[in-house]
């Protein structure tokens, strides 16, 4: 196992100790190692440098590297916490941790707020929501008249922007999602419960002596 370990660290510069990553997240050591199998495959799909760049991330999401998508870009930026333009293994595990079924709801709400606060102003503003809505319409087959888009925005801000100052703050967002729990569905990935069975090859590449379950 020793030769695997040193080789893996050379090839994956941001690779952190799976035992430490497991201690910081809802994942077991085995699950962290299974996630590494997924990470290896995504991070080698375009440039085999042990890091995930935006093109590789979009390729993994859409199975088509030509697809540009503002939502995928936004998720990538939130995974790339060190703002390096690439996602290392530690970033990958800690960001996916928020999507674990056992992760605290507070963390999911925080992440979703940042997702929609595209400008990072600390508020979800109407122009941001409009931009995302228009992007969604371009991406889907859905065709809506401009007036309908405005009516949807009016209705959304009437419900979410309780103090009616034209923007949604964190407290208003927490209140809004508690009234609309379906909005948090995208923040939980049931797949994360089964990653050791999805990527069973992790047992051959394990760096730890005993696989915790």
């Amino acid at each position: 196992m020793g030769c695997f370990s040193s080789k893996a660290r050379r090839q994956f510069p941001g690779r952190e100790d799976p035992v430490i990553l497991a201690s910081q997240t809802a994942f077991t050591v085995s699950e962290v190692e299974a996630l590494f199998e997924l990470f290896k495959s995504i991070s080698s799909s375009v440039i085999d440098d042990g890091l995930i760049n935006k093109e590789e991330f979009q390729l993994a999401l859409f199975k088509n590297k030509k697809k540009e998508n503002i939502f995928a870009n936004r998720i990538f930026d939130l995974f790339d916490v060190k703002r390096k333009g690439v996602i290392d293994f530690g970033d990958f595990v800690r960001a996916l941790n928020v999507f674990h079924p056992n992760a605290p709801l507070e963390d999911k709400i925080d992440f979703s707020f940042k997702l929609y606060d595209m400008d990072g102003t600390g508020f979800i503003e109407r122009h941001e929501v409009k931009q995302m809505l228009i992007a969604l319409l371009c991406e889907s087959e859905l065709r809506l008249a401009d007036e309908t888009v405005e009516v949807i925005l009016d209705k959304t801000f009437l419900e979410a922007d309780v103090n009616q100052d034209g923007k949604i703050d964190k407290a208003e967002w927490q209140d809004f999602v508690s009234r609309n729990p379906s909005l948090m569905k995208i923040m939980t990935l049931p797949y994360l419960r089964d990653i050791t069975t999805t990527f069973p090859s992790f047992v051959f590449h394990s760096e730890v002596d005993e696989i915790a379950t």
């Binding site: 999401l61 859409f62 998508n69 998720i75 929609y116 809505l133 979410a160 909005l183």
Partner: peptide, 25 residues
């Protein structure tokens, strides 16, 4: 009377927000 989806319900249907596809081989 059909209820209109709010903007976030619509946005959350984007394929770019469906990270589940990362796990599909």
């Amino acid at each position: 009377r059909p209820t209109m989806m709010n903007a976030f319900e619509l946005i959350s249907t984007s394929q770019g927000l469906n990270l589940g596809t990362l796990f599909e081989k």
